[in-house]
Structure formats: structure tokens, C-alpha cells
Simulated scan of single mutants.
Amino acid sequence: MKRSGPLFTLLAGLLLALFMLSLNATTGTGRSAYGGGSGGASPTPSAGTPTSAPASSDKPSAKPSTSKPAEPPPDADYAGRTDDDSAAVSVSVKDGKAVAYFCDGRNKESWLKGNVEDDGSMRLTGKHGSKLEGTLAGKKLTGTVDVDKQAYRFSLTKAVKPSGLYRATQTVRGAKLDGGWIVLPDGKQVGILKRDGKPGPAPRIDPETGVVVVDGEKVTARPVVP
């Protein structure tokens, strides 16, 4: 009987060791399932966790435009010959409006008028379908004029008085006169004088005074403005 004491002590130690091993295994599994290990689910942030503020939707206000408004072309007169040298053209511009005269110095002429855009472009119209389309750029006016279904290109230079466009309407000795003159920058003149509607070459005028003698009487031609 005395020999069984150590045997019971050894058996009790083995049972205690098995119990501790079982307890350790159970505790380790619980940490794996609910702990912060690599295999566990990511923790859900609490309601009090601050989040980044949304970007402001307010857009910066547009800067005011600093560009200057377009200015109308300056008042001026232009004169010159067509590119084929068969006729002359003169255009007078004032306050955004224009009047033009096409003349071959013999029997073909046309008066045209219209507006001038801020960019210098113009489209003038006259009787019998006549039209003039041109563009101002610096001291030049270039374009095309259509008269009697024929197109003439031109390049006009800025005219300095007494160069420019003149017209006279008057009755002399019972005849109704209507004359148009273009005084070119080189001093030459191109014009037509109608007597009761019949065209013919116009007599020379004095550009300084506008005086022209018709049938022995003085007639005054004046600068044309829109």
C-alpha cells in the first residue's frame, strides 16, 4: 500500500498537465476567431470616427472680361481704279455707313450704299442688282463690285482731300443734270454727267472749289457723305 502513493501522485500530475494543454488550445482558438489577427475581419469604424470633408462644390467666379469693345471704322474716303484699269471706284465712310460710286468715265456707273461692320467688312447695294463687297484694313479698302452682271476687283487707298468722291445735281437751261466725279490720289478724274438721264463723259471739275462749267454755266459739285 505504501508503494501506490507515488503512483497516484504521478497520475495526478499527468491529469493536471492534460487539463492545462486542453485549456491552452481552447484559449488560442478563441483569439484566432475574434482577435485582430491577419485572418480576421477588418474592424468597423465607430460612428464617431471623423471622415474627410467633401470637396467644396463652389466654383470660382469668372473674371470680368478685359477686352475692349470693337470700335467702328474711322470716317474716311477711299479712291482708286479697278484691277483691270477699266473703271474707277470711290467709297466714303462715315458713322458706320458707306456710299460708293463706280464709274468707267463713258456710260457705265452705279451708286451703292450700306453699312460698315465693326470688323471693317461691308456689303453695299445699288440699282439693277449692283453690289459691292469690301473689307477695310488699315489705309486700304479691297473687294469686288458687280455692275451689269460683270465683276470688277479693286484695291483703293485712303484719299486725302481734294481726292475723293463728288456729286452735283442741278437743272441747267431746262435740262436735269446729275453728275458724279472720282478724283484719284494722283489728281486724275473719272466721271459721268447725265443730261435728262442720258450719260456721257463729265467735264473736269475744280477739286478745290467743286466748280464745273456745264453749257456755259457754273455748277458746284460737293463731296459725297453717307
Rank of each mutant, 00 (worst) to 15 (best):
L11S: 01
L11F: 09
L11T: 10
A12N: 07
A12K: 01
L14M: 14
L16V: 12
A17W: 10
A17S: 14
F19Q: 06
F19T: 01
M20V: 14
L21K: 12
L21M: 15
S22H: 08
L23R: 06
N24H: 11
A25E: 12
T27N: 05
G28S: 13
G28P: 11
G30P: 15
G30R: 14
R31T: 11
S32Y: 09
S32I: 13
G35C: 07
G36W: 01
G36C: 03
G36I: 06
G37I: 00
G37L: 03
S38H: 11
G39T: 14
S42Q: 10
P43K: 04
P43M: 05
T44Y: 04
S46I: 05
S46M: 01
A47P: 02
G48Y: 02
G48H: 01
P50S: 08
P50H: 08
P50Y: 08
T51F: 00
T51D: 00
S52P: 15
A53M: 06
A53E: 03
P54S: 12
S56N: 10
P60C: 04
S61K: 13
A62E: 00
K63R: 15
K63P: 14
K63E: 14
K63D: 15
P64M: 06
P64Q: 05
S65A: 15
S65L: 14
S65R: 15
T66V: 14
T66E: 09
P69S: 07
P69R: 01
P69M: 01
P69C: 05
A70D: 11
E71Y: 08
P74K: 11
D77W: 08
Y78C: 08
Y78A: 05
Y78W: 04
G80A: 02
R81M: 13
D84I: 11
D84M: 11
D84E: 08
D84G: 05
S86Q: 07
A87P: 05
A88Q: 08
A88E: 07
S90R: 00
V91L: 09
K94E: 15
D95G: 03
K97W: 06
K97V: 00
A98D: 07
A100N: 04
A100E: 05
Y101I: 01
F102M: 01
R106G: 13
N107A: 12
N107W: 09
N107R: 13
L112M: 10
K113S: 15
K113L: 12
N115K: 13
G120K: 02
G120S: 03
M122K: 01
M122I: 06
M122G: 08
L124W: 02
K127F: 15
K127C: 03
H128S: 15
G129S: 13
G129H: 11
L132V: 07
G134N: 00
T135S: 13
